[in-house]
């Protein structure tokens, strides 16, 4: 599913776009940064917290992601877990090799919903 609507980038460099249809409802699109790594972890956490504070479903767009490490995946896992607990939908789009490989190495493919490209509530 492609993102639609104009994206608004906050100061963390992570774009958040409302208005994507996800499971029939409007979803927030989170454009993940190029480096989902320890060096960017504080900014990534801040963006994820902002997104978690909404009530929308979320689409995670990994199109720009070039590097991922354990710190980044751990944050994404905590974010997704929280959304699941809130019975909100999470969908992945444009997942590239670095993200998938890192998740696989850490045994997190399923927990992150990357085996099915998404998680239902």
């Amino acid at each position: 599913m492609a993102a639609s609507g104009a994206q608004q980038h906050n100061d963390t460099g992570i774009g958040a776009t409302p208005g994507v249809a996800l499971g029939g409802a409007s979803a927030l699109v989170l454009q993940l940064p190029a480096h989902c790594t320890l060096s960017q972890a504080v900014a990534l956490r801040a963006s994820l917290l902002t997104a978690a504070a909404t009530t929308s479903d979320v689409q995670l767009d990994a199109n720009d992601v070039e590097a991922v490490d354990t710190a980044g995946l751990q944050l994404l896992l905590a974010f997704i877990t929280q959304l699941q607990q809130q019975r909100r939908c999470v969908q992945w789009v444009h997942v590239g090799t670095p993200l998938r490989m890192a998740a696989k190495q850490l045994g997190l493919l399923q927990l992150l919903g990357l085996d099915t490209q998404g998680l239902a509530p």
């Binding site: 956490r45 978690a52 710190a71 751990q74 905590a78 190495q105």
Partner: peptide
């Protein structure tokens, strides 16, 4: 061949998570 199984029991809520600490076990 390596198969990793993550234990997420120690993973705090996002708001409580210190991003520079690894909270997972394998």
């Amino acid at each position: 061949p390596l198969h990793a199984t993550a234990d997420t029991a120690g993973l705090p809520a996002l708001a409580d998570l210190n991003p520079s600490v690894c909270h997972l076990r394998w």
